[in-house]
Design a protein around this nucleic acid. Structure first.
Length: 304
DNA sequence: GCGACAG
DNA sequence: ATCTTGTCGC
């Protein structure tokens, strides 16, 4: 199921009738999960058709107005809403409860993904599988373009090759749904037989299927998540627990958790070596650099 | 009111 | 992660 969340989202926004308003959170719930509320704001800010897609009808959960990306800023949002018959007093929507619209017709795409994850998850294995190479991956974005860097090393961490691939994403960043933004992009661009080290979580995830696990299962490769912060879990003496079970390790600033085809024990052993090798930083720098080069080559060039 | 919120 | 249209829970 390849969904374009931007398209699904904008079709929801179109459902808000003139003279009514909705909230960022209501739209997030219509997408299927309240955690998307911030992504709602982000997607509204990228509204491709302001006339057709009435992003001005989206306000904050307390009835205040929220933001508006427009040369005339929030003033314009107020003006348009008043023209549509919405009254605004002291920066708040009058009769907010009465004109609040949240009767969206939706197929709740994020819930569908949650169901899909339950299926994928059945194929996880935490038994170690041998590998000859390690690939560290990092992703940098510019709008909907993703710059995916790969650093490929052997078991002694000698550099074999490095490269960047560019692909586009049709899914915003939503906490706990990183797999659908970054994982799908990564899956489209990798083809090595190797252990994949990803900048995100493995099984240390609210639904037990973080980025590294998602990619590892769908590509049938061993994978490991190494992230600088975490969504869930409790750290006790360097071990990270979720629902009473250990699902990862805290080492320095890093959170390490198995993705797929790797054990907890092997995760910490390899994780330490990987961090020490510097390939995570190499991958990060390569992705960032290539995005910056791309940007500068597409702006302010020598042509009028 | 302030911090969380994988990237 | 970018470069700034949130929400919830403590």
């Amino acid at each position: 199921m390849e969904i374009n969340l931007y398209n699904e989202f904008y079709s929801l926004v179109k459902q808000i009738p003139k003279g009514r308003v909705t909230t960022y959170g209501d739209l997030a719930l219509a997408l299927g999960d309240i955690v998307a509320s911030r992504a709602v704001g982000k997607m509204l800010s990228e509204n491709p058709k302001p006339m057709e897609i009435p992003c001005h009808r989206v306000v904050m959960s307390d009835g205040s107005l929220g933001g508006f990306t427009h040369p005339e800023s929030i003033i314009k949002k107020i003006e348009i809403l008043r023209n549509e018959g919405v009254e605004i007093i002291n920066g708040k929507i009058k009769d907010f409860a009465k004109i609040r619209f949240n009767d969206f017709k939706s197929n709740y795409p994020l819930k569908k993904l949650w169901e899909e994850e339950e299926n994928i998850k059945k194929k996880i294995s935490l038994n170690d599988r041998d590998f000859d190479k390690i690939v560290a991956i990092d992703v940098s974005y510019e709008g909907r373009n993703a710059f995916i860097s790969s650093i490929v090393v052997d078991r002694n961490f000698s550099l074999l090759k490095k490269y960047v691939k560019i692909t586009n994403v049709d899914f915003p960043y939503i906490p706990t749904y990183l797999s659908y933004r970054e994982g799908r992009a990564i899956i489209r661009t990798i083809d090595e037989e190797a252990l994949y080290v990803l900048d995100g979580q493995g099984i240390l995830h609210p639904r037990g299927i973080g980025l590294a696990t998602y990619v590892g299962i769908l590509k049938n490769v061993p994978s490991l998540g190494i992230a600088k912060s975490r969504l869930v879990g409790e750290i006790i003496e360097g071990r990270i627990y979720l629902n009473g079970l250990q699902v990862g390790w805290k080492i320095g600033k890093y959170h390490i958790s198995p993705g797929n085809l790797i054990s907890l024990e092997k995760s910490i052993e390899l994780g330490k070596d990987i961090i020490k090798s510097g390939i995570l930083n190499m991958a990060h720098n390569l992705a960032t650099r290539s995005r910056n080069q791309y940007s500068s080559s597409n702006n302010g060039g020598p042509f009028p």
